[in-house]
């Protein structure tokens, strides 16, 4: 497989990999590194790649595993993920930002607080709009478990959002 060919295969879903990585790792730099790592791993497996019937699902699962491993090792070494995503958003455009934009970042923060599995299910379903069958394949979960996690995640986001609205805590 040539480089151009590889890029053609990878292009359509590389942003999805990045978004999943960012959802799990929170920091955009970490997510970029993770995505790059995954794409390079795929490139080194390019011979085998032709035999996979669903490269996207394979890459998504790889990303998920990679990020979870990353999180585990961070936790083990007691290192907090450093990220500056919230900072610039708040300070740089404080005046310009409309209230609506603000509540969007609330949703993001609420999602960051969710357990990893719920985070992933919500990301895959509500952001990337995967079908349940695809999520089953990607996460290796049972259909009922996915629905339970998804319902819980959605309800938690709703509750916390209402809480923040009524108390005005940012």
């Amino acid at each position: 497989m040539k480089q151009a060919e590889f890029l053609n295969v990878v292009m359509p879903f590389k942003d999805k990999l990045y978004r999943l990585a960012k959802r799990l790792l929170v920091s955009s730099e970490e997510a970029e590194d993770a995505t790059q790592e995954i794409l390079l791993k795929l490139w080194s497996k390019k011979k085998a790649m032709e035999s996979y019937n669903n490269v996207e699902a394979f890459a998504m699962t790889m990303t998920k595993n990679f990020c979870l491993d990353r999180l585990k090792s961070k936790q083990a070494s007691n290192l907090k993920l450093v990220h500056s995503n919230y900072g610039d958003e708040g300070s740089s455009s404080l005046q310009k930002q409309v209230e609506a934009r603000d509540s969007l970042s609330w949703v993001e923060r609420i999602m960051d607080e969710l357990p990893e599995q719920q985070k992933m299910v919500l990301q895959l379903r509500d952001v990337e709009q995967y079908e349940y069958e695809e999520i089953e394949e990607l996460l290796g979960m049972k259909p009922t478990a996915i629905r339970v996690a998804l319902s819980r995640a959605r309800k938690t986001v709703r509750e916390k959002l209402i809480q923040k609205h009524s108390y005005g805590i940012g």
């Binding site: 480089q3 609330w106 993001e108 209402i162």
Partner: peptide
Amino acid sequence: QYAPMFQYFASAKEERFTKQLAL
């Protein structure tokens, strides 16, 4: 009250991986 959720999901999908890939 539900609007921010759906709006966020839509905006979250706009994020792009912009790093240059060196193969």
